[in-house]
Amino acid sequence: MYAQLVETGAKRLKTLEEMSPEEREFQEKVDAETKIEPKNWMPEGYRKTLVRQISQHAHSEVVGMLPEGNWVTRAPTLKRKLQLMAKIQDEAGHGLYLYSAMETLGADRDEEIEKLHQGKAKYSSIFNYPTLNWADMGAVGWLVDGAAIVNQVVLQRTSYGPYSRAMVRICKEESFHQRQGYQILLDMMREGTDEQKAMVQDAINRLWWPALMMFGPHDDESPNSQQSMAWKIKRKSNDELRQMFIDQTIPQLEFLGCTAPDPDLKWNEETGHYDFGEINWQEFYDVLKGNGPCNRERINTRKKAIDEGAWVREAAVAYAEKQKQRAKAA
């Protein structure tokens, strides 16, 4: 999941009877699957939580460009380079769709980006891992975008209209990402040297657990998850989504002829699902707190891009101003 821990401010769930008339009308609309639109009344908690969730999601798309950007100049062929650039451009687009959706809630994009740069806003833990070999581009597309799709497909039905519409657009484009990733790995496994095949397994070994962590911690009875579910800004639990992802991914992994770095992974005939081992949650919380292998580097790169691009933005404004004056004079 691109938004892993979202604070809702709720201590416990209110019953319909305890709600104000406005709040009750709102909740009944959500229950009836009527989309909430920007001009509709909404509880302050709903608005704030959505700003947090959507900005976290947008930041993830934007920071997600960095591990891939690392390979643009190193891609093995021109075809691979073009595909990678198209994918990175999509991620930028996804970030922008999401920032736009967030702005309809009255949030300011610059302020939210500033929060990211100050370390006050989160983005997905997955992007704090380095991309060390070319197979990582395949594994990122296949596993990371694959995990994102599982999460985003259910978010197409989220209660907030602009967020839901952004998800529909994003999902359409993500399947290209996952396929291009899988194809990179497939080509390496089919036509690669032993060394290249070893790279694929190495990439999977490193990215497997971080990909599973994307869905966030185990579901608990916390008021946050209950509230997000009641507001329908979360539609399925973290564990449900993680299981869906594993069940659909293992056959693809086997087709590649690779293995997952999990000795407890096995098919469970009774449940009809794969059983799998426990995630290292200490690592998850460490990365989320800013102590992953690449957290500092990612934020510094983002800041540098903003700072060093300042003159371009200033020039654009000056140019627009000049054109306006000229048009007036003419």
Binding site: A86, G93, Y97, E103
Partner: peptide, 23 residues
């Protein structure tokens, strides 16, 4: 289809093209 930020209409057009009509 959505919105874009831009310093003038010409840039808005270019940004809209990149953002909403890549395919």
């Amino acid at each position: 289809v959505g919105s874009v930020h831009a310093s003038d209409a010409e840039m808005a057009m270019e940004n809209a093209r990149d953002l909403y009509t890549r395919r």
